[in-house]
């Protein structure tokens, strides 16, 4: 076994363990806290005791806790998410379209911002002290520190309400009834609704990439190897390219981590813009105490982060020729 394989095996094992623990935590939070998912239904008077018992046994809630735990683990780890209590549909058929909606919004936004703001960050890091540097730092500091729903509200007020350029809410017009993903996402109507949340998401993510790239380049600028590159007669752009290449790794890893977080959606963004994504669905499910939906959604989110973490570690170990894969320095 090479050192890299060993490292990979260890990381994998840790990730699997983490998944198990995370899933258990979700179970504990959902089952042990007071309140029952059917209280809402009972108090609303829609069900009698008989029906409640039937439903309880259907969801296995009448079994002892440990049996519930075992069957829960068994089903959730095999991606059997069961039925949504309130929507009376398989959980997956509720979540799938929502997840797609979220990804279609955030993945392009993340990629765009990673490319644009990292490039900008490298550029301003190279031209340290310029007006552009100050300006970009202030604006991205504002954008990344302000909660995303507030930025969203500002944008809605300006672009949707006052300039009336784009709609403020939803993913498509009420009248539209497209069939299938292609028709949904390739329409002009969709693009109209897409612009605003997309822009806000791009701006919200931009700060970290910009600073990461800028700090990396600033740090490399004073380095000895760049001095040698300069002595070799490389042009400014060539030097910047080398400084940028040397700061790529943290940006790549950060990108992987962010990508994992995308499955959580930007909950607040989705709520403000009425985007039917997974984050907004989860808030609704929590409000309505729809257990199976909540646990499935949270599980998917946790799993995505764990996988992204793993990917980031492996990326780092794989792409950095100098990093040693056994954790500490080489012996």
């Amino acid at each position: 076994m090479t050192q890299f394989q060993r490292f990979l095996a260890k990381r994998l094992a840790i990730s699997v363990l983490l998944t198990l623990v995370a899933v258990s935590v979700i179970f504990v939070v959902l089952r042990l806290l007071p309140g029952s998912p059917f209280e809402a239904l009972v108090t609303s008077g829609n069900l009698n005791q008989q029906q409640i018992n039937e439903i309880r046994s259907m969801y296995g809630l009448n079994q002892p806790l440990w049996q519930q735990y075992v069957s829960y683990m068994g089903s959730i780890l095999t991606f059997e998410f069961g039925y949504s209590i309130l929507r009376s549909q398989p959980v997956w058929s509720v979540l799938e379209p929502r997840l797609v909606n979220t990804l279609i919004l955030l993945v392009p936004a993340l990629v765009t911002t990673a490319v644009l703001s990292s490039s900008l960050g490298m550029y301003v890091g190279w031209n340290r002290g310029s007006f552009l540097e100050k300006f970009s730092i202030i604006s991205t500091t504002f954008l990344r520190s302000t909660p995303v729903f507030i930025t969203g509200i500002f944008f809605i007020i300006v672009f949707a309400y006052n300039l009336e350029l784009v709609p403020a809410f939803g993913m498509r017009s009420v009248t539209a009834s497209p069939e299938g993903y292609a028709e949904t996402f390739l329409s002009v109507d969709f693009a109209y609704h897409y612009v605003l949340p997309f822009t806000v998401a791009v701006l919200y993510y931009s700060g970290d990439f910009l600073l990461l790239a800028r700090n990396g380049v600033v740090e490399k600028r004073g380095s000895e190897f760049l001095k040698l590159h300069r002595a070799k007669g490389l042009s400014e752009m060539q030097q910047l390219a080398r400084a940028g290449r040397n700061s790529m790794l943290p940006i790549l890893t950060y990108f992987a981590l962010r990508l994992g977080m995308i499955f959580q959606g930007l909950i607040l963004l989705e709520v403000v813009f009425g985007w039917p994504g997974i984050g907004r669905e989860l808030v609704l499910a929590i409000q309505q105490q729809d257990y199976p939906l909540v646990q499935a959604a949270v599980f998917i989110m946790a799993l995505a982060v764990i996988i992204a973490n793993l990917a980031a570690d492996v990326l780092y170990a794989y792409f950095d020729p100098t990093v040693s894969t056994n954790g500490s320095g080489s012996a």
Partner: peptide
């Protein structure tokens, strides 16, 4: 250069 240890580009 003075310090060959740091003077070479580590990712090239």
């Amino acid at each position: 250069p003075q310090s060959a240890m740091d003077s070479l580009d580590p990712v090239m």
